[in-house]
Write a protein that binds this DNA or RNA. Structure first.
Lengths: 146, 146
DNA sequence: TTGCTCCTCACGTCACGTGAGGTGGC
DNA sequence: TTGCTCCTCACGTCACGTGAGGTGGC
């Protein structure tokens, strides 16, 4: 079996192969997350027996998944976006977003931001109403509706 | 049993009592959500047999729960915040937030907003790079890492 | 043998959604 | 009886977290 203490970049047939721990550590993910992505069909690691190994192409898929998450897409959405982009010609790894999808996603994100903005507004407003000064940790009647 | 088709505001002992459907409809919630809040100890409806009825005080609690959610708190957090505010003296229904909690929550929300801002930025940037014009629904190599 | 690593279940969390199956009064 | 209403399970969803229990090479 493979020596897991070997540094990232162990070669096999000239390919750089990383262990799941190396990939997780490098991208700031958990082992569970990587296994979960594979379980959901977003990733297909090469196997050496039961042990997962990640080549350069698979690592690039990990990056694309992370990018998709950062952009607010669900794993289900990301999976279909990756699949499409791998469809024709050379295997280009990336998110295959149509213009309409981008517009919709921006709209969704803006709505989420608006909700957060309102929350921040209200909390700041409460802070202002209270003002500075000594304050006992007593009951604070915020937003009592009477 | 009670006639559920009676309008909101059916009286019992002078109290305005609403059915779960009336409350849900009035606040834009689902029946499931209201039962779930009760299950989690955020709400205690009066019962007429097995049927839930909501008096004015309970309806106010529903409002406070909704406010807590809008401010980004979890149901667990909201529950403890409501409980505290009901602790001393007259039953004041509201969110008992300490200054430190407000500061922390604002910080949390600002981080979330920053993430959303970055996502919007990137999506808009992609839009700009593509520019206007006819576009085939083909593979778009966004964020390919090579 | 101890101490690493890897693995596969499988239940828990969060805030509900979604039937399934049964009740009660008009 | 049909058609409303209400109810209680209880499994499903989302993206994992968290052990439990077992393996393999130094």
């Amino acid at each position: 079996m493979r020596d897991f203490r070997s540094p990232p970049g162990s070669a096999r047939n000239g390919e750089q192969l990383w262990t799941i721990r190396e990939v997780a550590s490098h991208y700031g993910l958990t082992l569970r997350a990587l296994r979960f992505y594979e379980d959901r069909g977003l990733l297909r690691s090469c196997r050496e027996g039961p042990t997962r190994l990640y080549d350069a192409a698979t690592r690039r898929r990990v990056e694309v998944i992370m990018k998709g998450k950062q952009l607010g897409f669900t794993l289900t959405e990301i999976r279909s976006l990756i699949e499409v982009s791998n469809g024709n010609g050379a295997p280009v790894i990336g998110l295959a977003l149509e213009d309409s999808q981008i517009v919709e996603q921006i709209e969704l994100l803006k709505q989420q931001r608006a909700g957060i903005d309102r929350a921040i507004e209200e909390l700041c407003e409460t802070q202002r109403r209270r003002g500075p000064g000594l304050r006992e940790p007593t009951q604070l009647r915020s937003w009592t509706s009477a």
